[in-house]
Write a protein that binds this DNA or RNA. Sequence first.
DNA 1: CTGAAAGCGCTAACAG
DNA 2: CTGTTAGCGCTTTCAG
Lengths: 349, 349
Amino acid sequence: MRVTIHDVARVAGVSVASASRALSGRRKVTPEIAERVARAAAELGYQPNAVAKALRDQTTGTIGMIVPGIGNPFFTTIVEAVERELQKTGTDLVLCASQYSPEVEARRLETLLARRVDGLIISPCDIEASVPAVLDAARRVPLVQLDRHIASAGADWVGVDDEAGMSQAVDHVVAGGARSVVFVGSRLMNSSARLRLGGFERAVARSGVQTAAPLLGEFTLEWGIEAGRRLLDGGPLPDAVVCGNDEIAVGLLRSLRTGGLRFPADVSVVGFDDVGHATMCDPPLTTVRQPVEEMAAEAVRLLGQVKADDPRPAQRVAIAPSLVVRQSSRPAAGATPERPGRSTGRETA
Amino acid sequence: MRVTIHDVARVAGVSVASASRALSGRRKVTPEIAERVARAAAELGYQPNAVAKALRDQTTGTIGMIVPGIGNPFFTTIVEAVERELQKTGTDLVLCASQYSPEVEARRLETLLARRVDGLIISPCDIEASVPAVLDAARRVPLVQLDRHIASAGADWVGVDDEAGMSQAVDHVVAGGARSVVFVGSRLMNSSARLRLGGFERAVARSGVQTAAPLLGEFTLEWGIEAGRRLLDGGPLPDAVVCGNDEIAVGLLRSLRTGGLRFPADVSVVGFDDVGHATMCDPPLTTVRQPVEEMAAEAVRLLGQVKADDPRPAQRVAIAPSLVVRQSSRPAAGATPERPGRSTGRETA
DNA sequence: CTGAAAGCGCTAACAG
DNA sequence: CTGTTAGCGCTTTCAG
């Protein structure tokens, strides 16, 4: 049997109430008792039972987080940022992956709720299919969506301003002289895919450059490689390619290079996220940096304010991204791109 | 206030015991009662409180897992495999990252223990500094080490046979005609780093080829790139380079290619792990495949058998890896390497 | 200041 | 088969 506070109290020769008070330090006890309790606890190797405490306090000191997958460097980066942020408030993170499946996601939500997490941060995998489970969860516990979100205003959200990011990307390649630009992204089952394509299309229309039908697959390296092959096979190449994320961009770079292309001489490539290997690929990738730390901080802050099933209008916080210009794109005449030797992964353009 | 089983019982007009029995289905009740309870539960949106159940049952139905970092694709892969395996037994996984810090690791162990996980799977970040916390945890709860392990026989372990893997790697490049081979790995603060270097050195001694001082840094892409530069700057190149993991190998490939080298004509490169981008890099990487699924399955199986502070001798299970030959290395005369078009990521050589 | 006791939500005896 | 009740370990009234 594990040692309980009763054992500590008995060994210290005090009541459990005193032991509890001494251990928590949240109420005054005589130094004498504090001392005896501390010694007894140490001697017995007492470790408080967080389960019992949670039942009693009706709060677990944990928040749950669900992301589509931990294989994607963007999500691991944002998970780490959230964890760091939570650590400041002494809250533990329970991490789950939905594996890009709304069914798995719903199950994970269910078990996190059953375990009575104090709050939930989620990046819903599907803009449509995730709706019922997310709304249901939001009714039971404070919940904020981070990055991806569902097509319904029932829950708070914090993420990047995709529209602004895409504007920056398009304006950048146009300033570099591009007359034609295509978009390579993900199929439209999640909000990021939709908003980035939409932002791209509006930016292109505004600046008046040519574009062809977007290539939509997945947010993966593999799809980037495949999309590059299709571009090579499909007639005249555009002057620039704007990608839905960095994974796609890195894959694209690879297959276009294999096809004999040079960057940025033959074609400019721009990514989105600025996580993972954007600085380490060849050439280093021009990309739209997501302010991951700020997003995580804002999500945690908001979570502290949200109450379950709060009648107040849902908040939507879109944080402005910044373009990081490296060597995969042609800069505007006169502009100086970041030099390889200075690349720290933290710079903004 | 959340709805409890008392509410359900009241609405159904039965006792809490009957409600509990009906809900769990673990004991017979009349169909009549089962029906009424089910309806009441549905109507009220009842969701069992896992915290209360855990306190009552003295078991949480969760196991904790601690890995050094979720940014490393090897760890995310093995986490996913463990999660899949656990799912078969209806057990939930609580994932933590130690961020390669023994202090953080000790804190995470502490909170997982406080939350009364039923077991622990850990890849200790430091072969020396992780010892006390891991041994202490193993005394309290069933624990198995996966992949990395501490320098002490106090806890079970399952991992790959690093020695055999390195033999295969070295024998392969030697069969391909290499007369000199160097090792690029990680500094020796963890077991993988030590065992792989040791295995490499013994294999090299056995086969009689030349070698130079190993290059030791970290298990990262960045270090692979840096090591490649050092190799290019440091006089005559070896015929082959064997790497401590795939991240290093991919980085090495990149900087050696930038330096004008061709693979495998100028130099053979072999990785270790076969996860992440080993199939997607240029050229596809010859590497030692870790049998991740089997390792995860074995770890979970073992965890089911282990009792806390079990006096029986600690088990050590080393699973044999297999060499996957792709295009980054020169095959033995007459051997056929895997062709690019056939690459599925699941083949064995 | 200290101790006795209630109660968080649940399940498993134990009677009936 | 059903209901009453004890108790998992903890904290916090409530008296003293």
